[in-house]
Lab assay of single mutants.
Amino acid sequence: MEVRTIKVFTTVDNINLHTQVVDMSMTYGQQFGPTYLDGADVTKIKPHNSHEGKTFYVLPNDDTLRVEAFEYYHTTDPSFLGRYMSALNHTKKWKYPQVNGLTSIKWADNNCYLATALLTLQQIELKFNPPALQDAYYRARAGEAANFCALILAYCNKTVGELGDVRETMSYLFQHANLDSCKRVLNVVCKTCGQQQTTLKGVEAVMYMGTLSYEQFKKGVQIPCTCGKQATKYLVQQESPFVMMSAPPAQYELKHGTFTCASEYTGNYQCGHYKHITSKETLYCIDGALLTKSSEYKGPITDVFYKENSYTTTIK
């Protein structure tokens, strides 16, 4: 009895394709271990004539594949690729409408935090270190965002349907971005203890939790000093293409032309909904596939993004 075979390709990165001759009487799992086709788990399936010449994702289970996976995804987590594939199996079914010149995501599976993050990423200057993220990001900007969303979920250790947080998501993504040249110098002034300067680099240099107003941050924000008295913390120097200011959701007025974009969060910790506000020729609110415009805006804002380049204080 002759062994019926077909020729397929296996890959971990969709760049390096490895030619395989597979036995049609055995499952993919018996031949390769966990195997995925377009995100779908085909591990328990036997090869079919229609699979001839198709590319299958496999887990990096030998040295060659491990090197290829690390170079593309910059992670050695053995569960990463499987999590990416199972997320992709959902995100490829989502709709990605162009809204006001940006790629958004039609609401499904509690994905409003991903839509808000995706919209924000198209408006701030950011370059990702893992080629996987950078490639998928370019495709997302062009309207094909399924891979990018699935990668975000995998890097953030999230599953489809789980509630997510924009600030946490951005923080994970910033860790995989090139923020080497970003720098922030802060000064804390206390009447009792004097003053202390701190220099922050990388992710810490672009994120701040405690106030939404970048102007206020430049002037000074009140913080408790270690001595128990009130101290003032203010920005001395900022070198970065953008800054992200966050605070627990509270009524906040966004003035046209003073910011790049913002995240609105309605609801409580267990259950809520994100919308995205962007400042173009007027203010726009993007909620999944829905767009509304207004000249002014007041609502429960939790993150505001500002364009920056270089700032030095005039406070002496």
Rank of each mutant, 00 (worst) to 15 (best):
Q195H: 10
K127M: 10
V42F: 14
L163P: 09
N147S: 08
S25W: 13
A145K: 07
T313L: 14
P47H: 07
D23P: 14
T278A: 08
L163W: 04
M24A: 13
L37A: 12
I301E: 06
Y73Q: 03
E162L: 01
Y113M: 09
D287P: 00
P47R: 04
G39R: 04
W107L: 05
N187S: 10
N129D: 08
Q134K: 09
G101T: 02
A177D: 07
T27I: 09
M24D: 11
T266M: 09
S171V: 09
E52S: 12
K233A: 12
T260K: 00
F70Y: 15
D109T: 08
Y96C: 07
E71G: 07
E162N: 01
T302C: 08
N89T: 09
H256Q: 11
P60V: 10
C193M: 04
R184M: 05
A289V: 10
N178P: 05
Y36P: 02
T91V: 07
G257R: 05
Q122N: 06
R167H: 14
R66A: 12
K275E: 07
E2P: 08
T5A: 12
N157G: 07
G267S: 15
C182Y: 09
F148I: 04
D287L: 03
D38M: 10
C156D: 04
L65G: 09
N157D: 10
P241G: 09
V243L: 05
S50R: 10
K275D: 03
F259V: 04
V243F: 04
E264N: 08
M209N: 15
T76Q: 14
D38R: 09
N14F: 01
S50H: 07
Y234A: 02
Y269D: 15
T120P: 06
F174A: 01
A69P: 03
L88I: 02
A140Q: 02
L200M: 08
Y274N: 06
N61S: 12
Q134M: 07
E125K: 12
V221P: 00
S86W: 15
H48N: 14
V160N: 00
G161E: 08
P34Q: 14
Q222I: 10
K46Q: 14
G220S: 01
P249C: 04
N129G: 06
R167E: 02
V22A: 14
C261E: 02
A231W: 01
Y214G: 02
T313M: 15
S295Y: 08
K201P: 04
L254R: 02
E2Y: 09
Q20W: 08
P300Q: 10
V206A: 03
Q31W: 13
V166A: 06
R4E: 12
N187K: 14
K280A: 14
K183E: 05
N100D: 08
E144A: 11
A146Q: 10
T116I: 01
L126A: 01
T11M: 05
V99H: 10
G220H: 02
K293P: 09
Y284T: 09
P241I: 02
Q195E: 13
T55S: 12
N49M: 14
Q175K: 14
L173F: 00
P60A: 11
A154T: 11
V236A: 09
P224W: 14
D38N: 09
G272I: 00
A145M: 00
C156H: 00
V166G: 00
V203K: 13
K229W: 11
M245V: 04
F9S: 12
T43L: 04
T27M: 13
L133R: 01
Q237G: 03
P300G: 03
A140P: 03
L186Q: 12
H74C: 02
F9G: 07
G39M: 08
C193A: 02
N110S: 04
V185I: 12
N111C: 09
T258E: 12
T198V: 14
K298Y: 14
Y252L: 05
V166E: 01
A247Y: 05
K92A: 10
V304A: 01
D23N: 12
G194F: 01
L153R: 08
N49C: 11
T292E: 09
Q196W: 11
T64K: 13
G164L: 03
D303T: 05
K54C: 14
W107H: 04
T169F: 10
L17K: 09
L118I: 08
C271T: 00
E68S: 08
K255L: 08
I152T: 09
V160F: 01
T116Y: 03
N110R: 01
P97Y: 06
Y284N: 03
T199Y: 03
T260V: 15
D23I: 12
T266R: 08
V3A: 12
Q270S: 15
Y57D: 04
T258V: 10
S86Y: 06
Y72S: 11
A145I: 01
M245W: 03
N49E: 13
K127E: 14
K201Y: 15
G143R: 02
K191T: 14
R139L: 11
T312D: 04
I6V: 13
M244I: 08
W94F: 07
H90W: 11
V21A: 13
F305G: 04
A177P: 04
E239T: 09
P241E: 12
A87M: 01
Y137F: 14
A142R: 11
I315N: 15
A289C: 04
T199L: 06
S310C: 13
I315Q: 15
K44F: 13
T198G: 05
P60F: 10
Q196T: 14
A231I: 00
A231C: 09
Y84P: 05
R141E: 12
L59D: 14
L200E: 06
G194L: 02
E308V: 10
I15A: 00
E308G: 06
G210L: 00
T75V: 09
F128Q: 04
C271Y: 15
K92Y: 10
N309S: 14
I315R: 15
N16F: 03
Y274P: 00
A117D: 01
E308C: 09
T55W: 07
M207P: 06
G33M: 03
I223E: 11
A154Q: 00
L102K: 01
C182L: 04
Q251M: 15
A136G: 08
L254D: 05
L126D: 04
T211E: 12
K183G: 05
I45E: 13
E2F: 09
K293I: 06
L37H: 13
K95M: 08
T292A: 08
H48C: 11
D63L: 10
I315F: 15
Y138A: 14
T103G: 00
Q123I: 05
T312F: 13
K280Q: 12
A117G: 05
Q175M: 08
R184T: 04
D77K: 05
A289E: 15
G272M: 07
C285V: 14
Y137L: 11
V166P: 04
P224T: 13
A108V: 12
C225I: 02
G33Y: 05
E239I: 11
C190F: 03
K307V: 15
A142E: 14
H74Y: 04
Q216E: 14
P60L: 09
Y113T: 00
N61T: 11
N268E: 06
N129H: 12
V185Y: 01
L119S: 03
G53K: 12
K106Q: 15
P47I: 05
H176F: 12
T159C: 13
I45R: 13
C190A: 05
P131E: 10
Q20T: 10
S263T: 10
E2N: 13
E125T: 06
T282H: 09
Q197K: 04
E168P: 09
T199Q: 09
T43F: 06
T313I: 10
H90T: 11
K158D: 04
L163C: 15
K293Q: 15
L290W: 10
T199A: 09
Y265L: 00
G257I: 01
K275S: 02
A108K: 09
Y311L: 05
G164D: 05
Y274G: 03
G143D: 03
S246H: 03
M207S: 04
S171I: 08
Q216M: 07
T75F: 09
V206I: 08
T169R: 03
E162S: 08
E281M: 01
G194N: 00
P60C: 00
N16R: 13
Y155F: 07
P130A: 11
Q123Y: 05
G33E: 06
D38G: 11
Q216T: 07
P47K: 06
Q30N: 15
Q230R: 11
H48K: 14
S181D: 14
Y155T: 08
T91C: 12
T198M: 13
F70H: 09
T120F: 07
K54S: 13
Q238K: 04
L254C: 00
